[in-house]
Design a protein around this nucleic acid. Structure first.
Length: 489
RNA sequence: GCGGUCGUCGUCCAGUCUGGUCUAGGACAUCAGCCCUCCAAGCUGACGACCUGGGUUCAAAUCCCAGCGACCGCACCA
């Protein structure tokens, strides 16, 4: 089940389309969601709300995408979300300045070294372009944030490169007015923007993309004081410790053996595992990979990437970062706001554990894990609660009052469910079309319906049919949406 | 950003090398009609494309240049 196959289906069936596609200057790294893709995305986010936000008693906000410059002075993005690059003046190849020098001289070159020093090191060591031996130009910093000129004065501001900064800057007011107590998760779903130099692989690396982020604020002295940890401590996860794979290790073991820093982290890794299981990922192909010092983001003390195996390799779906007090301390310093809050009778600056989820790539990976090209048909076995169409309503033939009866059933369902009415083509063709977009159930109206008010209900996964009474349809759909097996006889 | 390959109906392919009957052809899909009592049947018809912009030429889908995009490799990637 390859990447090309999935992307082709996405394009042909209205899941995704390239943004601005009819214009010749369309940009790489920007994609529009079509109707089915949009529905899946909405349903995926609903699942996230149910299984993470509500389950854990988090609160959710929706912040702006354009944010002021000082936010990113404080967060470090203006300074650190950059690549120091040098361009060859002869062949125009771009190289990472720090890596170039490091490779040539063997000495460690910090990424954040001023460009003047980088230039000096290039000159001192007589470095040339590794591709063509041409002369190198001056080093400069390429920032991956999109700059936005706001107002007539064209004031510098930026499109947020991660949604979580909204949470950090809103945090002091939220804590006061929402009567929060530690530990508390603050969640947000929305767009983020990164000016990738070379976006690739469709929806896997975008310049404009959806994130669902959760920032858990907690008192670092009470990181193991977490009652609800007991609920999930036996959850088994796959843990990759520097290439050493622990299959099916209990979260409690991971904590006791100090593979994860505290119970907070263990608890949320378990929750995340359970969430993706409900989203339909093949969890045998998943792992939490602990990141080493070089790989971690500049703010993270400990980091676990939740990754899944796909036809294009291991894909990172969620970055789980223990950000410590980095963000609140930084915002406190730059803004002058006191970010300390009361926990019991002590004032503390909370620490943050973050679950930063990529929505677009999650949807791709779920699709790949549930897609099957069978000899007779193509079918996506989306969990019913994620499927873009929940139920197809099909008249077996287009005469003798059968379409009218079918439309009656459709009209009764359409405001409550994503129902789809189709009378075009043979019944088999209509089943195939709905299989291909992952619709879990079809209701077919035939001559018997006219006599005894029963309809057939067809199962996407097995193609089996059962007969139920018209009055049972809604109840049965509810069961299907709860992933109960209504076809078992 | 660099290098390579490529860009024709929604999809796949023919045509490009060797410019002209290409007013761009076929298959699948879609739509309409006929037929029809459960898994892509059949028949009839319809819709539908040369990535964009320049250039060469009497004539460009075809040759040249540039741009944009896709894929692969490099580099990059919270």
């Amino acid at each position: 089940m390859g990447y090309d196959e999935i992307m082709k289906l996405f394009l042909e069936r209205g899941f995704l389309m390239p943004s601005c596609e009819i214009y010749s200057d369309a940009l790489a790294g920007f994609w529009d969601y079509g109707p089915h893709g949009n529905t899946i995305k909405n349903r995926y986010v609903d699942l996230w709300r149910r299984e993470l936000v509500r389950r854990d008693g988090m609160i959710e906000i929706d912040g702006t995408q354009v944010m002021s410059k000082k936010v990113f002075v404080a967060s470090g993005h203006l300074e650190s979300f950059v690549d120091p690059i040098v361009k060859c003046e002869k062949c125009n190849a771009t190289h990472r300045a720090d890596r170039l020098i490091q490779e040539a001289t063997g000495q460690l070159v910090p990424e954040r070294l001023p460009v003047e020093q980088l230039d000096q090191m290039v000159v001192e060591n007589g470095l040339r372009c590794p591709s063509c031996k041409g002369l190198l130009g001056k080093a400069r910093r390429f920032n991956l944030m999109f700059r936005v000129g706001v107002g007539a004065a064209d004031d510098d501001s930026y499109l947020r490169p991660e949604t979580c900064q909204s949470i950090f800057v809103d945090y002091p007011r939220l804590f006061k007015v929402m009567r929060l107590r530690l530990p508390i998760g603050v969640a947000q779903f929305g767009k983020s923007f990164r000016n990738e130099i070379a976006p690739r692989q469709g929806v896997m690396r975008l310049r404009e993309f959806y994130q669902a982020e959760i920032e858990v604020f907690f008192n670092p002295e009470r990181a193991n004081d977490l009652g609800k940890y007991e609920e999930v401590k036996d959850q088994k996860i796959n843990l990759d410790l520097d290439g050493n794979m622990l299959q099916g290790v209990k979260c409690s073991e991971a904590f006791e053996q100090k593979h994860v820093p505290n119970k907070i982290v263990a608890y949320y890794l378990a929750l995340l595992h359970q969430f993706y299981e409900k989203a339909g990922l093949d969890m045998k192909k998943s792992r939490f990979r602990r990141l080493g010092g070089q790989e971690k983001a500049f703010y993270a003390e400990a980091a676990f990437d939740f990754e899944v195996e796909t036809s294009i390799g291991w894909v990172e779906l969620v970055a789980c970062n223990y950000r410590t007090g980095y963000d609140l301390a930084a915002h406190s310093k730059v803004s002058g706001q006191d970010m300390a809050v009361l926990d019991g009778d002590k004032k503390v600056v909370p620490h943050v554990f973050e679950l930063s989820m990529g929505i677009d790539r999650s949807i791709y990976c779920i699709t790949e894990h549930t897609y099957a090209a069978e000899p007779e048909r193509t079918v996506i076995r989306f969990k019913p609660h994620l499927a873009p169409v929940t139920v197809g309503i099909l008249p077996l033939v287009n005469k003798d009052g059968i379409p009218e009866t079918a439309k009656g059933i459709y009209n009764a369902l359409k405001t409550r469910y994503d129902a789809f009415y189709d009378e075009s083509g043979s019944i088999g063709r209509r089943y195939r079309r709905l299989d291909e977009i992952g619709c879990p159930a079809c209701i077919t109206i035939d001559y018997q319906t006219l006599q005894d008010n029963t309809v057939t209900l067809r199962d996407r996964d097995s193609m089996k049919q059962i007969r139920i009474n018209k009055d049972q349809v809604e109840l049965t759909l509810e069961k299907i949406l709860r992933t109960e097996d209504v076809f078992k006889q």
